[in-house]
Computed example of a mutant assay.
Amino acid sequence: MAAYQLQDDYGTGDTFFDNFDFYTGGDPTNGYVSYVDRSTASSSGLINTSGGSVYIGVDSTNVASAPGRQSVRLSSTKTYNHGLVILDLAHMPGSVCGSWPAFWMLGPDWPNNGEIDIIEGVNEQSTNAVALHTSTGCTINDSGFSGKLQTSNCDVAAAGQSNNAGCGIGSSDTQSYGDGFNQAGGGVYATEWTSAGISVWFWPSASVPSDIANGGPDPSGWGTPSAAFAGDCDIDAHFNQLQILFDVTFCGDWAGNVWSTSSCASKDSSCTSYVQNNPADFAESYWSVNSLKVYQDGSSARNVTAFDASTPSSRIVRKHRRNGFYHGQ
């Protein structure tokens, strides 16, 4: 088992945001959202670093206007090849109608360099689902994890699966996402990415392994992960140069497309109308980060400097979504 050493500590002060680019283009998911730059986010109270944690939120004060409710989308200025990514959250965006938050990792030239969705959900979802998205030639086994296999072929164009579904594993733990996560006082997600596979663990705040708090994380002692992706897949061929991302969008190709069949339809006939006219309902749509750390073992650390994700030549625009709905980010 790898002996992990700290490579990047993103901190909780203002320097946290120095390590990310603020995306300000149109939402590839067709969401009702306006992603703002760092200056606007700061002056509007959408980001801050007071109280020993990092706040990343959305506008919950104003009736929105086109192109949509103000929000923040962050992409790390570094990319990674392998590693152990540990995110300690005091709060994640709640289970709020119209919202679509995600914490994830993404490579350039999607899907050829891969994607790892670590935390993601829409509307009043109560449990987390983890997914991978790749080009052809990557399937996973239905074993080695405590969650439930949803789809096994990570290829975004796989026959017999919804378009862009990828391979997904769902959790049955109601503390793993949204309101349940927040009511439990937050928690920790750990994602281990090696040549052998990609695994994700979750613990509520009261159950986090002591080796994580002590700065010496050792996955060999963590038990069965909630999601594990291994099988007929060359991980190193399908996952390269991944950035770390946070975002919250609204409606669009997933949250919007399932609106009419969800419990949210009782609130408004239109997702966009609801998000536009009910700002106070999004007061819980924020990330509160206690820490974000990336560890590497000596044999597989292959960190490289990220491209500038804000330039047109390198901006990533793609679409995907399990269950047949697109999530282009």
Rank of each mutant, 00 (worst) to 15 (best):
Q175R: 08
E124F: 02
S199R: 09
A227N: 06
W193C: 04
S34L: 09
G114L: 09
V294N: 00
Q125E: 13
G31N: 06
D27S: 15
D117Y: 00
N278T: 05
V130K: 09
V317W: 00
V289C: 08
N153V: 13
C167R: 04
C154H: 03
Y32N: 13
V58P: 07
P312R: 06
N62P: 05
S195G: 12
N277L: 07
F325D: 14
Q125V: 08
T191P: 01
T139A: 14
V294A: 01
L87M: 09
T61E: 13
F325P: 02
C264H: 12
E120F: 00
D9H: 02
A184I: 08
N164I: 01
S71Q: 08
A230Y: 15
S146Q: 04
P225K: 08
W254D: 05
D88L: 01
R315A: 15
S39E: 15
P219A: 04
R38A: 08
W203I: 00
H82D: 13
L89H: 04
F250Q: 12
G68Q: 06
F145Y: 15
L74V: 06
G25N: 14
Q276P: 02
S99W: 02
S300G: 10
G170R: 13
G168V: 09
S210G: 10
S76R: 01
S172Q: 03
L149A: 07
N30D: 14
F20N: 04
N257T: 07
V156R: 03
A301S: 13
G252P: 12
W287N: 11
G231P: 11
T311M: 04
Q7D: 13
V208M: 00
E120P: 05
I212G: 01
R38T: 02
Y177G: 01
A190Y: 00
G26C: 04
Y4F: 15
R321N: 13
A131P: 05
G107D: 12
N30L: 11
